[in-house]
Every structure is written in structure tokens, then in C-alpha cells.
């Protein structure tokens, strides 16, 4: 069953077109990375999905129209915007009280369990916590909500590497299962490459690439070619090339592995390389 179904979503702010006909289909049990440069429309797309902004086109999330049914939708959707949205004045214990009070799907014991693994005090106010702790708190809160869709918008922005790694680790180990779906946007493509099951590139308000990670890994290869074989490599129509330390790295789409091995060292490309290639082709 499709968790998110979008057909031709358009959204303009004045004369600036943020979303220019976005089609998106996200199935249950996937972890989808929505990746794009600044101003590509990532956050606008998430806002439309979360019922935070009106849009043109057809969009259903868990069978509901997010703009007209935000409050109902939020029973099954959890959301982390970025590290700075928890109200700074609130006490941790009050935050748990509130979530327990308004959210039927919130399991307080679970949240307390996650918090017990951190050094966050219950009587602390959010403003007294470090940036990393605020993220831990928000994640604990969200993971204690039995939601079917979790939306993360740059959830680890501004955090150091330890917290970032911990964030995705606990998400995978303590939260994710086949009945849940996660949609995440981030700039740190490398970090989530191993987390994702699917990837979508967005550019200037349009979806320019979409693939499952399995497909990505079987379809794309990277080959490191010494200068004398560059012409031969170019003959295989690489989708992108970049010089590195006197050699050239070619990104190949659907090339034969044996054939590439004759040219140089064959590697698994990173999502970031494909991202750059796709963006430059636009």
C-alpha cells in the first residue's frame, strides 16, 4: 500500500516556483531519502506532505488529504523538523506529559526507556540542554509514538558526528520495522547511504531521479582509469567523470563489470557522486 501518493504537486511563492509538478510514490516499509540542493523544494515538499502548506495537485498521505486533515493525520505521522523546534521553555517531564495527553499512540514508558540511555534530566528545561541532547530528546519522543510514517527534515543538522551516527543507529535498531515508513531529507548524503532503501533526487521543484538502493547498486559502477585508457573509458559513455590525482574516475550507468575491470579499478559509487552527476546533467 502506498503511504504517500503525489501527482503533479505544484506550489509557488509569488513568482518563485518551489514545486513544479512533483510525482512521488512511497510504499510502506521503505526508508526514502529525499535529496536535493538548497532551494530544490525539499522542505516545501515535506510541508505539503505534513499538511503545513496548501498546494495544487493530488496528494494523499496514509489515505488522507494532509491539508484538510492535518490533525487526524498526525496521529499516524511523526515529524522532526530540525534540532531547533522543541519549545525552549518547556520542561522534559512536561513535554512527556503533554505528548501523553494529546497523543493516543504515545507510549510514555518507551520514551522514558530511551531517555534513560541519555544524560537528559527529567526536570531540565529544553533551553538548558545541548543541541545534541535536544535531538536525542526529540528522537526519544518521536520513537515512542507508534506512527506509520516518520518524516525527518535535516534531523541532524549542526550536530557532531557522534550524535549523527547515534541518531541513525537508534532509528534503525530501536524503531524501524516493515510496517513503518521513513522519509528523510539531508545534505549529508554519505551518512544515510547505508540507511536508505530508496533514494529520490529533487531539483528545482521536480523529481529528477528515483531508484531503490538495490537497483542503484546493481546499475551504477565507478571505475578509476589511468590517463592512457581515458579515451576507451569515454567510449563507454560514462555519465560523469572527474579527475583525481592524475587519474580519472568515471561513473557508468549499466556498464558491464568485466569490461570496466579491463580499464581500471572498479568500485561501488557513492550516492553523493551520482547526485553530483545527476545535478550537473540538469
Amino acid at each position: 500500500m502506498a503511504v504517500i501518493e503525489a501527482r503533479g504537486i505544484r506550489k509557488a511563492f509569488g513568482t518563485t516556483v518551489a514545486l513544479d509538478g512533483v510525482d512521488l510514490n512511497i510504499e510502506e516499509g521503505r526508508i526514502v531519502g529525499l535529496i536535493g540542493p538548497n532551494g530544490a523544494g525539499k522542505t516545501t515538499a515535506l510541508n505539503a506532505i505534513l499538511g503545513l502548506t496548501p498546494y495544487q495537485g493530488q496528494l494523499t498521505v496514509l489515505g488522507r488529504d494532509p491539508w484538510t486533515a492535518r490533525a487526524e493525520l498526525m496521529r499516524d505521522v511523526a515529524y522532526i523538523a530540525d534540532v531547533a523546534v522543541l519549545p525552549r521553555w518547556i520542561r522534559v517531564s512536561h513535554l512527556l506529559d503533554y505528548a501523553g495527553g494529546v497523543h493516543r499512540q504515545f507510549d510514555r514508558a518507551k520514551a522514558e526507556g530511551f531517555l534513560a540511555k541519555t544524560s537528559i534530566r527529567r526536570d531540565a528545561k529544553v533551553r538548558e540542554l545541548s543541541k545534541g541532547m535536544v535531538t536525542q530528546l526529540h528522537l526519544a519522543l518521536v520513537m515512542a509514538i507508534d506512527a506509520r510514517l516518520l518524516v525527518l527534515d535535516e534531523p541532524t543538522l549542526g550536530l557532531d558526528i557522534l550524535y549523527r551516527k547515534q541518531f541513525y543507529d537508534s532509528l534503525l535498531n530501536d524503531y524501524f520495522d516493515q510496517s513503518r515508513t521513513i522519509l528523510v531529507t539531508t545534505h549529508q548524503v554519505e551518512e544515510i547511504q547505508d540507511v536508505l532503501t530508496d533514494v529520490v533526487f529533487i531539483h528545482r521543484g521536480r523529481i529528477v531521479f528515483g531508484s531503490s538502493m538495490e537497483q542503484f547498486e546493481s546499475r551504477y559502477l565507478e571505475v578509476v582509469v589511468p590517463p592512457d585508457r581515458v579515451a576507451a573509458a569515454r567510449a563507454l559513455r560514462p555519465i560523469y567523470e572527474r579527475p583525481v590525482l592524475g587519474r580519472t574516475i568515471f561513473l557508468m550507468d549499466g556498464a558491464d563489470r568485466q569490461q570496466l575491470a579491463a580499464l581500471g579499478e572498479v568500485r561501488k559509487p557513492s550516492l553523493a557522486d551520482l547526485f553530483v552527476a545527476v545535478m550537473e546533467a540538469q
Partner: peptide, 10 residues
């Protein structure tokens, strides 16, 4: 920006 948090609640 805490409105984003409040709006994430049902």
C-alpha cells in the same frame, strides 16, 4: 519555530 513541533502533534 516551535509551531512546527506543536503542529506535529494531533
Amino acid at each position: 519555530r516551535s509551531v512546527l513541533f506543536w503542529k506535529s502533534m494531533p
